[in-house]
Design a protein around this nucleic acid. Sequence first.
DNA 1: GATGAATGAGCGTTCATTCAT
DNA 2: CATGAATGAACGCTCATTCAT
Lengths: 191, 191, 191, 191
Amino acid sequence: MSKSEKREEIVRAALEIIAEHGFHGAPIAMIASRAGVGAGTIYRYFANKDILIAALYQEIEERLYPFILRGYEPARPIRERFLHLGAALLRYCIENPLDFRYVEQFHNSPYGAALRRARLLGEGGERETFRALFEDGISQQVVKELPVTVLCALAFGPIFAVVRDHILDFTRVDDALMAKTVAACWDGIRR
Amino acid sequence: MSKSEKREEIVRAALEIIAEHGFHGAPIAMIASRAGVGAGTIYRYFANKDILIAALYQEIEERLYPFILRGYEPARPIRERFLHLGAALLRYCIENPLDFRYVEQFHNSPYGAALRRARLLGEGGERETFRALFEDGISQQVVKELPVTVLCALAFGPIFAVVRDHILDFTRVDDALMAKTVAACWDGIRR
Amino acid sequence: MSKSEKREEIVRAALEIIAEHGFHGAPIAMIASRAGVGAGTIYRYFANKDILIAALYQEIEERLYPFILRGYEPARPIRERFLHLGAALLRYCIENPLDFRYVEQFHNSPYGAALRRARLLGEGGERETFRALFEDGISQQVVKELPVTVLCALAFGPIFAVVRDHILDFTRVDDALMAKTVAACWDGIRR
Amino acid sequence: MSKSEKREEIVRAALEIIAEHGFHGAPIAMIASRAGVGAGTIYRYFANKDILIAALYQEIEERLYPFILRGYEPARPIRERFLHLGAALLRYCIENPLDFRYVEQFHNSPYGAALRRARLLGEGGERETFRALFEDGISQQVVKELPVTVLCALAFGPIFAVVRDHILDFTRVDDALMAKTVAACWDGIRR
DNA sequence: GATGAATGAGCGTTCATTCAT
DNA sequence: CATGAATGAACGCTCATTCAT
């Protein structure tokens, strides 16, 4: 196994186990054994468990962002752009439930809050795209005049809630329902 | 300190520490010391940590439910009823951020998922009220024809997201913004 | 409940619980609740748990000794005297299994060894009777010329072993088997 | 220290401390420190304390059995066979007092009773040898017609009692006394 | 005198991290 | 480099003992 393959195995194992059992249910020894490496080896790639956790979060973001931007055209009308981004986000989460579960676990830790706070100040990855969309929408008087954070809440809150229900098998989400959900989110933010 | 005061102190200490640091950041010894009691004392009131956690969740529910139903009139129009419930829910969370944080932690634990699943089957406390409202709304063709779980997501998702941002000081939520937020949620679910 | 009744209840409860569950399975709180008194009350009668344990042992000895001496006639022949004492001892243990179990637990604790050592030096209750019997037997050349401790071992060892098996339901001991067992013990020590 | 030496050290430390102080007087931390290892290390070799205790018992049995069978010839006369086994058993206990004390502690625990009960049903290690001997003896009309459990009591009861006295320094047991003791046991069971 | 709630030292056990091999 | 055995601090929990009522 090459060096980078090993790293990948570790990250994959951590994702699976943490998504499934949460942070407390994921001892380093279990991650190592699922990854097929020694426990000490993990510390060659990540200084400690917190850093592994943060790096994994990073990786997920780096998969998500290209996914939702694929085919995105900033020149299209606001509504169309929103429907594209919302649908892509929803689809990604439905198709990558481990990633979604992991991100939820992460945000629900002291660590996650720190990161979110840091994001507010600096550049925010895909956040920027949504921020630009909402600010365009406001200035074109297509979107409600609300703080961007609230618009985010109106747009993403329902999407993530639907994904949660889907993962817990409370709601079966198919393409049709995905479209309707995102459309309803648009109703929430549009003027 | 009287017997019931001691119990209350324990519950309050647990609420504060768990809301702030999560379940892993809240050892029994820390809860005990914050409550001003010995560690063993907690076990006179709660058989073990899990039961303390569940009891605290129960207590929060028992505070929340009466709060949001105060002044609720099931005979009023759907929209009005929704605005009442949504605003009350949002206000409760804003005014009781520890309760909100705690409930989030709880739902994000294996324990919480088990409870949610159990709720789906049996009677669900305040859930019933919302379910009735949404089903009324659908049959009166005032609300979108979507699964109740999705309507819940559209209604509560944004509310909880706004509360999260408020607690993290990302958004300052005043009465006006609360009203606008709930109104936007209504736009999301109404036909 | 009078003062001495209360003491008796405590001792009885301790006997039952310790005989059944051993010393670790017998917290003071459990003894108190079985005795129908408060936990603190036990400390009015016994300075601490060790002293309760020792006092209970004492009480059992004080029941056993009169029982085996009932009808004992030191003037009768050695063999007859031995059969009397052996049968009485065996019968007592079979009929009072809690006492027997307790004594076994006791002897198997650091405490029990200390007591046995103390006994060797001072006067030893019923031990004296047996010692006298064996020494008579040796001087009359009816009993093997062995140290008294070894004669005790030959006489009591099998009796206690049989009782253990009876209590664990490995052997059903009736009057006939009791007689045969004691007779065999006699064969062990007689010339 | 090699891996298997470490395991051995742990077992030896546990034997010493439990033999001396009983199960409650032998916390894991004390065993670890006597063994010269960290407390957590014990759990690499034994899943928990109960399993350590059971494994140690097993090891003692596996030392005892070969010892008493060394030079045993099933073709010799009953009496000779009994004297061989009895003397070997007695010698083993005298020479390995820690083993003896440990086994006594073990049998006097809920765990030990469970094992004894299990033994009654299945094959019983060295028990089988003694059982065969006694049954041979009965059918050859050399041994008293008593239940095997009672014959065991007559044979082993005195031996273990003598060992107890020896360990507590009540009786000094030398080769001559060992021989006499076993001979007396034979008198107890022979016709 | 009697109570039982309160205490906290001490238990068995886990697991992030280190380091000899 | 990679390993995984070793570590020990920290956890949840029990229970003998105390003491305010």
